[in-house]
Simulated scan of single mutants.
Amino acid sequence: MARIGLITPSSNTILEPETCRMLRDVDDVSAHFARFSVLKIGTDKEAIGQFNLESQLAAAELLADCKPDVIAWCGTSGGWMGLDQDRLLCEEITAHTGLPATTAALAQIEAFKRLGTRTYALVTPYLSDIQSRILETFAAEGFEGVAEEHLEDPGNFSFATYGEERIAGMVRRVAEAGPDAISIFCTNFNGVRIAPGLEAELGIPVIDSTALTLWHALVLAGADPAIVPGQGALFRTS
């Protein structure tokens, strides 16, 4: 039995039900969740302060009580706060719990590498300054953003209110730039169910952050991601 520990933003309503749905028909893998307070996404002091190490570690330590094989921070904050922030978080989680750790942003970088991605397109619900920082963060890792769409929403709860058709339209438009991959970069956005179908339609890997984080957690837990049915090319890499 592989147990996956997932730290969730408190106002996120997509991640938990969709992760459980993806694992519904998977034997010997269970998902377990802990939350800390995240109410809005922005670059102001209050918004950035939500992602303090103390709150995240407290959630990780609670998850450790159920003896998971891995702990993942299921937030994309490393995209605009910098990947060093996420790397430090993972180091501290491991130091406090003895468990391997990852984040949605670090998983995105690993996914790009596994898929041989050089160029990508970015789809999010975020504000312009958040979007710009994500593009800069990924560029520093060697990945070129060739198209992007965002919704100028400070969220976080509201991100889940956008329908799949609207998000699919965003994905189809950025696909016109011919990227190697498309990232739907938010774990509270309705991209997880439509990503596999869009990938088949467009012939381009479409990577949703909720599925992405589960993928990397499974890899770190020593499980084969291919056991999760109905997913795209990423789940066939390990």
Rank of each mutant, 00 (worst) to 15 (best):
G79W: 14
C186T: 05
A101H: 11
G82M: 10
T94Y: 01
E92I: 06
P229R: 04
I41S: 07
I130Q: 07
E92S: 09
T117P: 02
S128R: 02
A147Y: 13
H150V: 09
M1V: 11
A223H: 06
A101F: 12
G49C: 11
L202Q: 11
P125W: 03
K67A: 08
F143E: 14
T213I: 15
S209A: 15
L6R: 00
R87P: 03
T8S: 06
F51P: 04
C186N: 12
A160T: 10
L106A: 05
G5V: 05
D28T: 08
L23A: 11
T76M: 12
I4M: 04
G5F: 01
V70W: 07
L212M: 14
R24H: 13
S55C: 06
N52D: 14
C90F: 05
N12I: 14
A147H: 09
L202F: 09
P154W: 15
L6D: 01
A111G: 01
S37F: 10
P17H: 11
A58T: 11
V192H: 10
A140H: 10
F138R: 05
R236Q: 14
G116R: 00
T117V: 15
D153V: 03
A60R: 07
Y120A: 00
T161L: 13
E18K: 06
S55F: 07
P229Q: 15
D65F: 02
A140V: 08
G232F: 05
T237I: 02
L6G: 00
L89K: 07
L23R: 06
I14M: 12
Y162L: 05
A111P: 00
T94E: 15
L62C: 02
I182S: 02
I7Y: 00
M81W: 08
T124K: 00
E46W: 04
T124I: 06
E144H: 08
A60C: 09
S30M: 07
D84H: 13
P154E: 15
I48M: 11
R35W: 15
M170V: 00
L63V: 10
G191C: 04
S77A: 14
E136F: 05
E201K: 00
D25P: 08
A107R: 00
V70F: 08
A59E: 12
A177L: 15
F138V: 10
S37N: 07
D69N: 10
E176H: 02
R87G: 05
